[in-house]
């Protein structure tokens, strides 16, 4: 019965991708959220809400123009970096040392997980199986469940 339920769940999961398409996203939106407003407000370009901001309108126009020239995403972003410097990018995307920014957090997590697993295994090996040195009494499963139920709360 459980296997059947699992099969049904898997089938449903596989069937869902075939249920039609959603609305396509906008390239302008995507690129506009990868750029910063350069006025110093510290906001993403398309989220800058300063009326009379000296920079955001110009930047948005430039973004539309660059997209219209047919440049790929990287080309558009490089154009902005060349004009405004690397701080115009909302995140470091230039390759080279910028990649370190992305790798280090995940590397730290992986190293941490590795260390935790390593130490648990090490400690497990060092722990004697039964500190009292006596064989544990056999307990059947139903009794174990009853003890849990009756004593936990």
């Amino acid at each position: 019965m459980r296997k059947r339920l699992l099969h049904i769940a898997l089938l449903c999961a596989l069937a869902v991708p075939m249920l039609g398409a959603g609305a396509p996203g906008s390239r302008f939106d995507a690129l506009g959220h990868k750029l910063m407003c350069v006025c110093g407000c510290g906001q993403v370009l398309l989220e800058c809400n300063h009326v009379g901001c000296p920079d955001s309108d110009r930047e948005i126009t430039e973004l539309r123009t660059e997209i219209a020239t047919g440049l790929p995403d990287t080309g558009v972003l490089n154009w902005f970096v060349a004009k405004y410097g690397p701080t115009v990018l909302a995140a470091p995307l230039r390759g080279g040392f910028d990649i370190v920014a992305w790798i280090v957090p995940f590397a730290a997590l992986l190293v941490g997980i590795g260390l935790v697993v390593f130490f648990i295994r090490l400690w497990r090996k060092r722990t004697p199986p039964n500190p009292n040195g006596q064989p544990e009494p056999q307990i059947d499963a139903s009794l174990r469940d009853r003890i849990r139920r009756d004593t936990t709360y």
Binding site: K34, P86, V88, A91, A101
Partner: peptide
């Protein structure tokens, strides 16, 4: 300098 904004 680089910006470490919301996308990061």
């Amino acid at each position: 300098k680089v910006t470490m904004g919301p996308p990061f």
